[in-house]
Write a protein that binds this DNA or RNA. Structure first.
Lengths: 325, 325
DNA sequence: CCCTGAAAACGAATCGTTTCGCGCAAAAAA
DNA sequence: TTTTTTGCGCGAAACGATTCGTTTTCAGGG
């Protein structure tokens, strides 16, 4: 492989001039041409490792999230990636499968890999673990969808509580009084917020809270599937279910189909995410739409700002979700 | 940031000894302990750039694919990533949005980024473009799901023709004679193969081929949606539709719902991929299941083998798909 | 007590860039 | 023409690890 030295020799200039050429500095037209030719002749390409060693930058951003198998996350990623790429960054991705140990390890690994910055969708990490890994390293982090309490870093979130309240209120207006909620574990911020919205809607409408109608579990198919069976087995089953995650929703619907329970005649289901799947149901499922594109774009833009040296105090934004019928 | 030099000084040994310690060589117990302490005291971490410059390896694998928004791809990625991570590689991902220009650019970019190897799901690149980018660089490439004709590299594929033939034969056995196929553009290998299977099934069952029943378009929602409307508008509409992609299937079903066409009473739909979504339909959609896990795992394992120096001639495997009712 | 040989430490060179200060020459101002 | 400015090229010193050939260390045997 040819090096910058070879190019310099062949072009009859010094290394520094070639370097300047490569990085867009001023070079005399005559030299410019001979360097161009030498590079072409030698098929020279910059060695990224040497460059990074010198600059201490890799032009890469780490993305740490639970999984890409959930459309909500993969959509966010797609939007992220587009923006980052346009700015010359590539993305190093890590999925920790909702495993606390892996989450910590990958976070660590990612940081020591030399990423310039990090976009992070947290789940189990504590503020202490976070600080310990980041230590006195200068790696900007943008949190997405959830924020670790006590961590000092940007966060791009959604208005879970607000939109959940709207969704449940909508069910109440449609005449439902016994409304179940199937959601993620209490350790996950978004799950807590969505339940908070659910509770607020009940309260605002004077409906007493029934503990047996709220179910928490992992954010997976089985939670919805079994949750549905559980709810239908109650002495007084709900007439509507607020399902706060796409996998859970698919589980709920599959269980209903297998049991011959008709949606929405026998029980109404309100979903979250994966709008296209919900809208292909007969009739379409009402659903909470989250602005994945905007979330991803915003997070990427914020990270880039930090990478360009913005030292302002961390900020948080709550993007608006909407109901889709 | 502390360097290996600082550690050496504090521990009272030479750099090379510290290096040996880090990389798991033999070190005298006394030194071992003092190095350990120095590293902890200084919070020293290996500088990945310096290491890579020296070794010319980054311990990273590039993944180049059309998008992660399609479950089939994201599932493959998930499986890939797991295997690679376990072996200490991180993954740099690039989605080219089915755009020929981006595909070429990102391929180039990825290679010049310094990845050790590449897992590649190709779409538009020609063998010439491929060779020009790879040139005399020693970056092993494993192709996935599709293979560029004339390119000399490993390929992990599925038996598209075979399973498509089975699917269509199944429809025929159920009494269908007018079966439509909605599929990807002819430029995509898998689309061609699936149509080949469709044709073989017709032929084996003595059903004449009707050109108006085969529709090619992009692998997106709109193709299915409009394809469905088109088919139903024919003078003699089909009684079954073989839909060879998940987004297309969702489009087909949405269009059917909006038009009040009942599936499967009015028209039968046979899907491809996204088994969980298909199985939540009432009744479940029959569907071709592709072994995403196995595809991803195999590709990752093959790449690792190459990275470990395996110089055998390239191989190709066709993994078996199955029908799911 | 010395010698021997293997194990481990050493020091310097190297990987391929970028950067910094200096100097020269040509263009602009006097 | 002389002086000042400006524009570019040059050479050498980093960046922080690994590696290689050589020297030191230290048991154990004679």
């Amino acid at each position: 492989m040819a090096t910058i030295k070879d190019v310099a020799r062949m072009a009859g200039v010094s290394q520094s001039t070639v370097s300047k050429y490569i990085n867009g500095g001023q070079v005399r037209p005559a030299n410019l041409e001979s360097i161009r030719r030498a590079i072409a002749a030698l098929d020279y390409r910059v060695n990224p490792f040497a460059r990074s060693l010198k600059t201490q930058r890799s032009h890469s951003a780490g993305i740490l999230l639970p999984t890409l198998s959930v459309p909500f996350y993969s959509q966010i990623f797609t939007a992220l990636d587009k923006v980052l790429r346009e700015r010359g960054y590539h993305t190093i991705i890590s999925c920790y499968s909702s495993d606390h140990g892996l989450e910590r390890d990958y976070f660590n690994f990612l940081v020591s890999t030399g990423v310039d910055g990090l976009i992070y969708l947290p789940e189990n990490l504590t503020a202490d673990e976070f600080s310990e890994i980041i230590a006195n390293r200068s790696v900007p982090v943008v949190q997405v969808d959830r924020a670790i309490p006590g961590v000092c870093a940007d966060a791009v979130l959604t208005d879970n509580t607000e939109v959940s309240c709207q969704a449940v209120s909508h069910l109440i207006r449609s005449g439902h009084r016994r409304i179940a909620a199937i959601t993620g574990p209490g350790s996950i911020q978004t799950a807590r917020e969505r339940i908070a919205g659910y509770l607020r809607a009940l309260e605002e409408n004077g409906i007493p809270y029934d503990d047996s109608l709220v179910l928490r579990g992992e954010l997976i198919f089985a939670t919805g599937y079994q949750g549905f069976l559980h709810m239908m087995g109650l002495a007084a089953p709900p007439t509507a279910i607020f399902s706060t995650n796409s996998d859970i929703t698919i589980g709920v619907i599959t269980a209903a189909r297998e049991r011959g329970v008709n949606i929405p005649d026998d029980v109404t289901v309100f979903g979250y995410d994966c709008v296209d799947v919900c809208s292909m149901m007969t009739p379409p499922l009402p659903v909470v739409y989250q602005p994945e594109q905007e979330i991803g774009r915003t997070a990427a833009q914020w990270l880039i700002r930090r990478l360009e040296g913005d030292g302002d105090p961390p900020r948080t934004v709550r993007l608006k979700c909407s109901l889709q019928f």
